[in-house]
């Protein structure tokens, strides 16, 4: 059976890259005594797939990995066992059974990801940036150059921004300032990173953008149950059977 597991990755874990995270997770499964299926062949490896790799430097409230297991185990038990030996910053949240077709794979379902961006201390723009940001978003077309490994192409990213708003920071404890909340297209077809949007805005509005100016948190990853004209986004965990 295939289980979808959701976890959060916070704090120091933001410095752990995707490949190391995969290595971590395999060891975590062995420590937890979860009977993960191995692939056949000369060098068997655990059968698992990640929905949407998270870049180094970002935190996340909702990361997804799909795992094939031989001996059935309830989602609650998987979560409980995995949480027995976690480093600070990792918390396993949910696990539930998911379909086993190719289309059920997390990486094929991903359609949208939501992010919260906070300015790193000392990197804030001057206060009037918010109105400039909203008028930037009012355009029908925002053209950016997307660089692939070999190719460069111009893409209109405006339709791929499903949500963009600036709110006062409320859930961030005693920290002050604005947070930017973005809902962006994600996955195999169209994928835009939050930095790309902010870079495009900074370029258009004549502000400086630097690589580490935002703390970025991924809030949730969604599948699209609707159509291209009428999206119906649901969190990946709700795609379980």
């Amino acid at each position: 059976m295939r289980m979808r597991i959701r976890y959060s990755k916070q704090g120091l874990m933001k410095f752990i890259g995707h490949l190391d995270m995969m290595r971590y997770f395999q060891k975590a499964c062995r420590r937890a005594g979860i009977d993960v299926t191995y692939t056949e062949g000369m060098s068997p490896h655990m059968s698992m797939s990640y929905a949407f790799p998270l870049g180094v430097g970002m935190t996340s409230d909702s990361e997804y990995v799909d795992v094939d297991i031989n001996t059935p185990m309830t989602g609650e038990e998987i979560v409980e066992r995995l949480n027995l030996s976690v480093p600070e910053g990792i918390r396993f949240l949910d696990a539930c059974e998911i379909g086993i077709t190719k289309a059920d794979k997390g990486m094929n379902q991903v359609a949208r990801a939501d992010y919260t961006l906070r300015f790193r201390e000392g990197c804030e723009w001057d206060p009037d940036w918010k109105s400039a940001f909203y008028s930037f978003l009012e355009q029908d077309e925002i053209l950016v150059i997307k660089k692939g490994k070999k190719t460069e192409k111009e893409v209109n990213i405006r339709p791929l921004i499903y949500k963009a708003e600036v709110t006062a920071m409320e859930d961030a404890g005693d920290a002050e300032g604005d947070v930017i909340r973005l809902g962006l297209a994600a996955g195999n077809e169209n994928n835009i990173r939050p930095e790309l949007v902010m870079q495009a805005f900074a370029d258009a509005a004549g502000r400086t953008f630097t690589q580490f100016m935002f703390h970025i948190n991924r809030d949730e990853v969604y599948a699209d149950r609707g159509s291209a004209d009428a999206h119906e986004f649901v969190p990946l965990i709700d795609m379980c059977l």
């Binding site: 120091l12 410095f15 752990i16 890259g17 971590y24 420590r31 030996s85 976690v86 480093p87």
Partner: peptide, 8 residues
């Protein structure tokens, strides 16, 4: 990762 000290 070399400098964090947060290993399991």
């Amino acid at each position: 990762e070399r400098y964090l000290g947060n290993e399991v």
